[in-house]
Design a protein around this nucleic acid. Sequence first.
DNA 1: TTGTATGCGTTATCAT
DNA 2: ATGATAACGCATACAA
Lengths: 355, 355
Amino acid sequence: MKKPVTIIEIAEKSGVSVSTVSRVLNNSPSVSDKKRKKIQAVIDELGYQPSVFARGMISKKTNTLAVVVPDITNPYFTSLIVKIEQYSKEIGYSLLLFNTMTAGSNKFADTGFKEATAFKSIIEKQVDGVLILGGEIDKEQPNEEYLIALNQLNQQIPVVIIGQKQENCECIFVERDLDKGVTTLTQHLLALGHRKIGFIGGEAGVKVTTQRVDAFKNTLTIYSEVDESLIILNDYYVEDGYHGMQKLLANTENLPTAVVAINDTVAIGVLRALADAQYNCPKDIAVASCDCFPNSEFQIPRITTIDQHNEYLGKASVMKLISAIQSEDENSMIQHSPELIIRESCGARLKGALR
Amino acid sequence: MKKPVTIIEIAEKSGVSVSTVSRVLNNSPSVSDKKRKKIQAVIDELGYQPSVFARGMISKKTNTLAVVVPDITNPYFTSLIVKIEQYSKEIGYSLLLFNTMTAGSNKFADTGFKEATAFKSIIEKQVDGVLILGGEIDKEQPNEEYLIALNQLNQQIPVVIIGQKQENCECIFVERDLDKGVTTLTQHLLALGHRKIGFIGGEAGVKVTTQRVDAFKNTLTIYSEVDESLIILNDYYVEDGYHGMQKLLANTENLPTAVVAINDTVAIGVLRALADAQYNCPKDIAVASCDCFPNSEFQIPRITTIDQHNEYLGKASVMKLISAIQSEDENSMIQHSPELIIRESCGARLKGALR
DNA sequence: TTGTATGCGTTATCAT
DNA sequence: ATGATAACGCATACAA
């Protein structure tokens, strides 16, 4: 790889000073058209590319955002990332990806918390802003060190978090309406006549889970009773839905007639467990779910679920971040309404047209 | 945000020269233990962070790799990215993510090809290396401009492509064994007695598709006959599997007894179409698939598929890239063998233990 | 409109 | 073992 062209060479070859070249580069109006053309021609000819380093020395900007995500394998996060990437690109920012894998393998963090190394890299890389999608911050009681590190990070670089507001954390939060959807969902089941309803998936001590379970319980309480033994919290994956449902089915004395899954992936596991145990869904046991993942519409049966309309969250969070970077303290409100998507898994409209 | 601490301040406060501080920073052995400790203390106290820009001015390195992916929503790519991110992190590189969304919305590229803007950013960002996971390069006849841009990019920055070798492209390729798996799969179906076998999914003119269809045809030819009308090429998503199968089912005169799907997402669509048309899988029509996506094991029925063991590909491609960056022209061979995962959707071992 | 000179924060080279 | 200083490539304040 040969050494790159510098602004000096462009200046020499164009017969002007470096400042003039710099002006052309930065679209300064005070350059004669003739020189501008000439210079641009030389730039193109030599394929000149300004050094990010030299530029950064002065501007202190990388035009890069970091996005920290717990599990890039999770459709919920990828759908957010897609939007984030798209909008970032539009406004001239690149994305540095950090997949902390908080979920999955081992829950207990090695170095206190999984995000530690990510935070370290982020500071080193001197990105302009940081986007955090869940992870440790989603816990009811985030690791103490984590919060310290997070606040410290936020002091150097603006941080926007897609998640529920956390005490003692000065970052900017973009909150989701997590309970309304579950409330609607539960009401849907109740309206269909269900009274014994279970809940599967999610992790105890995690905000999403707590909020959804609470919304579930609160709604259920109005018309029926909450049976704690029908609430199984484990995690957010297929296996969890499968095992959770198995557990419920094991107690044949006390079977629910319907089940709410924390997300569509878990719901798939639930459906599988039902099929394996020869139960028909929705006839024997109905299944409702949250988050409307891409393939859930093609499951057998098609999963009735909640579309959180997260499309908007991605863009909104980037917008907030950019505002913070430019310290335009605009306090725009993020609004999004969860929407019930009625399909087959709860037995409603079974004879009607399906979508 | 206050202005950051510089090496000079550290030097002053430690009562040494900047050179000595720099030496401590870079673990140079020639620093007395006493001074090293003293300096380190000051560094920690002030929370000093070396400037990437100033460093880059000298080293020309960003310690960043770019990864260009067509669709981060696709499990095939995310599974690769997970590994790539993990290994990159281990060896001290960050990842710049570019999601070109080649797939999905509009196929015809706006500016010639979707990767154009990504390539531009990559050059601007001066990453140390580039990883390309499919996209335009996967086509039988990649866009001419694309190839030019790609070679141009490769001249400035080492590029590793996970995909089949392409004529007139000087990048480094990490190839996958695409046909062996399908051959095995087809043989599996043939061994189960199937003779009329269809193929669904994939895009004409794309290497993966062509290779898999060819492998399918070649294997089928040995024991039976290829019926072109049973081969439906459209795309790689659920809808494609659904519509593809619908199309096949429409011709009741010429139903296949088994179908091969290009990947598990498509297979899910196929299963749905079968269920909707009241066909039982595997009894009426068996379904075999490729790529072993996370949830396919929980589908109804569980999908028999090919595990390409891509785990290794991710790490291997990063290794190759790093070698290229350090111009250690090591020509390591990538070996990975597709493995048949027999589950329920083809009817084999139906009475045996499942998994 | 254009050019000159300076500084940005670090590492590398060369002395000492 | 330590220090002084010259790059690195660009933008910008100031001068013309």
